[in-house]
Design a binder for these strands. Structure first.
Length: 785
DNA sequence: GAGCACTGC
């Protein structure tokens, strides 16, 4: 009954929408009513299919014969349908495979006209003589161009302006130039923030070309590890995190006349903090202009937050995207995604566009790749070639390049991507998007301090962003593997902003060092949970970064200089006392890149594990092992070959080197001497403990651990060098919740260090070892080495 | 004996 009611609602909804929207080409009655409960001949599983299915469960006899029978059957259907009906393929594609998925067409999204004045512009372009003149002509063809004067007027009249500019409007490249041309740069720089490094670099490069100046002179960019600006710079593109760092050195942003926060709708941690800060300084700097640029959906919200700032709308340049929903919810979205991809591939003419599938992670992508390869192999030359391209952030760079290679004639590309394809990279030639509606998202529990990655449904905003990836170079189609009802009723409007689901220790330290004391009443657009703020304050107090009154201490000020989590910063500050800052910054760099240092391909897991064991010799613990990895690599003069031989990710190591170099430079600023003391492992571990003493745990009888301060049962992660050693006392880098509550990156600890290093945090009774009455200290299993 | 979405300083 429930199912039926849903379908009725979908029907009404789709019908209503189709009447409202003239863009809907054709409304197809959902089949839900005529075959409800009945068996449609077309859809009945063939004998071959049933046998195939059975063979998957119990009886594994002759699986390949079954598979072949099934494939032959499918091919028959596919070629039949494709050959006989090449005109209305779109309507028939879902009858090609037996375990087909039926879609219902919903709304058509976007479809902002690709300017009618195109001809005039083309003319203008054609008469341009030099390359630079062509660039100038191009500037005038952008959708934002007609709004130049009214935009300048609006900026003049209002201090804060919310700009709604869809992708392709040219807002990021043009608006700063307009303001420059109008003379705003006489009073200071125009800063434009981006959520990603590559965006800041490429936009700056484009603008410098348009202005015919050398990149880094009048137009520059500033990102971590790379400051490409000079005294001449008036237009500065930068990452949002970089502007946040600049705030620390210049709390009134005196050198800027305009700040434009671009892509504000992405709500990164940094933009959310920037909002509060720029809103605050705008009050006593009436000459500072603020531009907040966002996508359509939440413009009102931005306007409300900035005291009803006017909203300035600029149309984009997009092609229409037809949205399709499944008729019924799909139980297995991975299978549904694969079937849909094959349906599209077989029924749509080759060469008309590639397919992009959004999956949640590496493992899922690898599984999908295997299944797709297996199924298309069986089809052989009877169908057009399907090129499978996996893409995720951890994929080695040389393999990532594959998605950008043009699709050969007569073939089709299917890109299996994580969320990396939602905003971070754009792939040309995508016409079809398959969206199962899930994403892997990090969540943080402030009570337990535990992080976990959960597969969660995406938001409507995210679903629309995904759909839009199909309409970049021509009209697109999006296949959502969930129902229209799910979309309208179950999905949240927007993704929960990062600030509400992350550890805030670093945020709080930065705000404190900006002199913001009342954090619970700080004007956040969406305030984080009070519990998370309190947890952060509590930690900073424990680390002696804050005093009793919540004010920053000398130690805290030093810590704030480092772009790291406070516990890592504290570890570095403490290394000054133990005379091993050289080793500690290497460890800090290695820890701060996360745990994707060791490369472990499926087919060489044993080799990879053996290579890793080398660094764990002597059960020194994971921190020292990381140090050994870094030092060994440095001894080879940062050899790439060495990384391959030891199954270590080259990219991660290069990142660690960059971070380490930066940390080394910062040591001087906080007056810590760079001292090397590689032999004294105790000094190194004491420095680590100085930052990580709140993360101590004691082994229990069954080999599990009990965290000391906020007691909970945890385990050493199996990838740890100490997983088999089980020392009595350990200090850990982080807690993650996966199949169990795991400690990742673990080192052995002497309990007396805790009272020695953090007497304000641990009393003797905390570290009292009942067993030690029978067994003297130091006789634990780990100490036998 | 497990599994790491994506950014950023």
């Amino acid at each position: 009954m429930r199912e039926l009611r849903y379908k009725k609602q979908i029907y009404d909804l789709v019908k209503k929408r189709s009447q409202e929207d003239d863009n809907v080409n054709e409304y197809r009655m959902p089949d839900a009513y005529d075959d409800e409960g009945g068996v449609n001949q077309e859809k009945r599983f063939s004998v071959a299919m049933e046998r195939y299915r059975d063979s998957k469960d119990g009886d594994k006899m002759n699986p390949f014969a079954e598979q072949e029978a099934w494939e032959d059957h499918q091919i028959g259907k596919a070629t039949l349908k494709y050959g006989s009906k090449n005109k209305k393929q779109a309507d028939d594609y879902n009858f090609v495979f037996e375990d087909q998925i039926e879609f219902i067409q919903g709304q058509v999204m976007g479809g902002v006209n690709v300017d009618d004045e195109v001809n005039e512009e083309e003319y203008e372009k054609s008469i341009a003589k030099s390359a630079h003149e062509k660039l100038l002509a191009d500037r005038k063809t952008l959708p934002v161009y007609p709004y130049r004067e009214s935009l300048l007027k609006a900026v003049e009249d209002h201090q804060v302006l919310v700009i709604v500019g869809e992708t392709g409007s040219g807002k990021t490249t043009q608006i700063p130039q307009y303001l420059h041309e109008a003379g705003y740069t006489k009073r200071g720089m125009i800063g434009c923030t981006q959520p990603r490094r590559v965006a800041a670099m490429s936009v700056a490069a484009r603008v410098s070309q348009e202005m015919n100046v050398k990149l880094g002179h009048e137009v520059g960019y500033s990102i971590r590890f790379e400051d490409c600006t000079s005294d001449k710079t008036v237009l500065k593109y930068m990452t949002d995190g970089m502007l946040l760092r600049e705030f620390l050195g210049e709390p009134d942003l005196q050198s800027y006349s305009v700040v434009m926060v671009d892509e504000a709708h992405e709500r990164t941690l940094s933009t959310d903090i920037l909002f509060g800060l720029v809103k605050d300084i705008a009050r006593f700097r009436p000459d500072l202009k603020l531009l907040i640029s966002s996508a359509t959906l939440d413009a009102e919200k931005f306007s409300d937050y900035f005291d009803s700032a006017p909203i300035f709308k600029i149309p984009g340049r997009r092609f229409p995207v037809e949205i399709n929903y499944t008729k019924a919810p799909e139980a297995d979205y991975l299978d549904a995604a694969i079937v849909t991809a094959l349906q599209i591939h077989v029924t749509q003419p080759p060469g008309d566009g590639d397919i992009l599938v959004f999956l949640t992670g590496q493992e899922e992508i690898e599984t999908a790749e295997e299944i797709l390869k297996h199924r298309t192999r069986g089809l052989g030359s009877k169908i057009a070639e399907l090129i499978i391209c996996p893409i995720y952030a951890n994929l080695p760079t040389e393999l990532q390049a594959k998605i950008f290679e043009p699709t050969p004639e007569g073939a089709r590309k299917v890109v299996l991507a994580t969320n990396i394809a939602e905003t971070s990279l754009t792939i040309d030639g995508i016409k079809y998007v398959i969206d199962p509606g899930f994403v892997k998202m990090k969540s943080y529990n402030p009570r337990t301090g535990m992080e976990s990655l959960l597969i969660t449904p995406i938001s409507k905003a995210s679903a629309n962003q995904r759909a839009g990836r199909s309409g970049r170079t021509g009209p697109g189609k999006c296949f959502r593997l969930y129902t229209a009802y799910n979309y309208f009723n179950d999905l949240d409007d927007n993704t929960v902003p990062e600030i509400q689901r992350t550890n805030l220790a670093n945020v709080v330290l930065s705000l404190k060092s900006l002199g913001i004391h009342d954090l619970l009443n700080f004007d956040f657009m969406d305030p984080p949970p009070a519990e998370a703020l309190l947890k952060a304050l509590e930690l900073l107090f424990a680390l002696s970064a804050l005093n009793k009154h919540g004010e920053l201490t000398k130690v805290g000020r030093k810590m704030a200089e480092f772009p790291l989590d406070p516990m890592l910063s504290k570890m570095i500050v403490a290394s000054d006392k133990y005379k091993c800052s050289d080793e500690i910054i290497s460890i800090a760099a290695m820890l701060s890149i996360g745990s994707s240092i060791f490369y472990r391909p499926k087919d060489k897991q044993v080799h990879a594990d053996n290579a890793r064991l080398n660094f764990h010799m002597g059960n020194v613990g994971d921190h020292i092992a990381l140090l050994k990895v870094y030092s060994s690599w440095k001894e080879t003069n940062f050899s790439t070959q060495w990384c391959y031989e030891n199954y270590i990710q080259v990219r991660s190591m290069k990142r660690a080197r960059d971070i380490r170099d930066q940390l080394e430079g910062l040591l001087e600023r906080v007056e810590i001497e760079l001292v090397s003391n590689p032999g004294d492992l105790e000094a190194i571990k004491k420095s680590i403990t100085s930052g990580y003493f709140p993360h101590s745990a004691k082994m229990q009888k069954n080999g599990s651990y009990r965290t000391v301060k906020h007691p909970q049962t945890v385990y050493i992660h199996p990838s740890s060098g100490l997983a088999q050693v089980l020392p009595r006392w350990v200090v850990y880098h982080e807690l993650v919740l996966t199949t169990k509550e795991y400690m990742r990156q673990v080192s052995e600890l002497k309990p007396e260090w805790l009272v020695e290093i953090a007497p304000h945090y641990y009393q003797l009774k905390d570290v009292e070892d009942l067993a030690s009455k029978k067994m003297p200290r130091g006789e634990g299993r780990a100490s036998k080495d």
